[in-house]
Simulated scan of single mutants.
Amino acid sequence: MRAATVSRFGGPEAVEITELPVPVAGPGQVRIKVAAAALNPVDAAMRSGVFGGGDGARIGLGWDVAGTIDAVGDGAGWAVGDRVIGLATGHRTPLGTHAEYAVLDADAIAAAPATLNDIHAAALPLNALSALQALEMLALHPGQNLLVTGAAGGVGGHAVELAHHRGLKITALASASDEEFVVSRGADHFLSRGRTPTPADFDGVLDAAMLGRDALAAVRDGGTYIGVWPGQEPQPERGIRIDALDVRADSAQLAVLARLADTGALLPRVAQTHPLDAAATAHARLAEGGLRGRIVLVP
């Protein structure tokens, strides 16, 4: 089967389409015939060596997946033919989801949203799980004030939607051209990028744009700051609790998110699709920036 991999770190040109054996589902696992798989910034980070390695071992790319189960390991609890979404977390693994087949643990998948096609369903898992788990880390209560930076991005956009669903008062920070979108998804207030939030005005901030200290300054004394890239969060001050998300696969949470997508509460956005064989081209387009929505690879 074909899979997008890297055997050396670098730019988009490092991505190779290689022939690999079709993987086998072990106990508690399923094999998914991949219909679509989103391309995320974490894939670019893996490709460029942010997570280390570099010993020449081949690394598979891709975390998000949507497709149909075609093989089931002992005790997995799923059936051949089930349409699912899933998240394959982990770094430096030999096979990711940017492939014709992917093997995932049964607790890393959920039934795909019935109202979404595979391409849009594939854009949901990583970004929506990241937003949900970051909000859980923030532990804010209905009526409290939340600042979301990067509010028009994959994680930030879903954070706005989920925070609205939880009854939080949301200020969204994004480019001026994104105001209509983020307000339509549940933001109560909007700040265009470049404007400074009111200092010490928010109970919490989800810093999806990785603004660091500029975002931290908006948090009240004793509030909470959650970043999205471990190791990049600012130093604590003013009694603010500071943490960073390390997203994990969770089938129960994925199932909740799929149901929310079916109600329209979550809207995964797709900017472009590319065939799997053009994965390097897709990486190059991701590197250019400016997209609203995910690039999705189709085997």
Rank of each mutant, 00 (worst) to 15 (best):
G56W: 08
G56S: 10
G56L: 13
G56K: 06
A57H: 11
A57P: 07
A57D: 08
A57T: 11
R58Q: 12
R58F: 07
R58T: 13
R58W: 05
I59C: 11
G60E: 02
G60F: 03
G60H: 07
G60C: 09
L61A: 08
L61G: 01
L61W: 00
L61H: 02
L61Q: 02
G62R: 01
G62D: 00
W63V: 00
W63F: 12
W63C: 01
W63I: 00
W63P: 00
D64P: 06
D64S: 05
D64N: 14
D64Q: 12
V65C: 10
V65S: 06
A66N: 02
A66R: 03
A66I: 04
G67P: 10
G67L: 03
T68F: 08
T68M: 07
T68R: 14
T68S: 13
T68I: 11
I69L: 07
I69M: 07
D70I: 10
D70Y: 14
A71E: 10
V72Q: 08
G73V: 05
G73Q: 06
D74N: 10
D74T: 04
D74L: 14
D74S: 14
D74W: 03
G75M: 05
G75I: 03
G75F: 03
G75T: 05
G75W: 01
A76T: 07
G77T: 01
G77D: 02
G77Y: 02
W78F: 15
W78S: 11
W78P: 12
A79P: 10
V80T: 13
V80S: 09
V80F: 09
V80M: 05
G81Q: 09
G81M: 07
G81R: 10
D82N: 14
R83M: 04
R83P: 11
V84W: 00
V84N: 02
I85H: 04
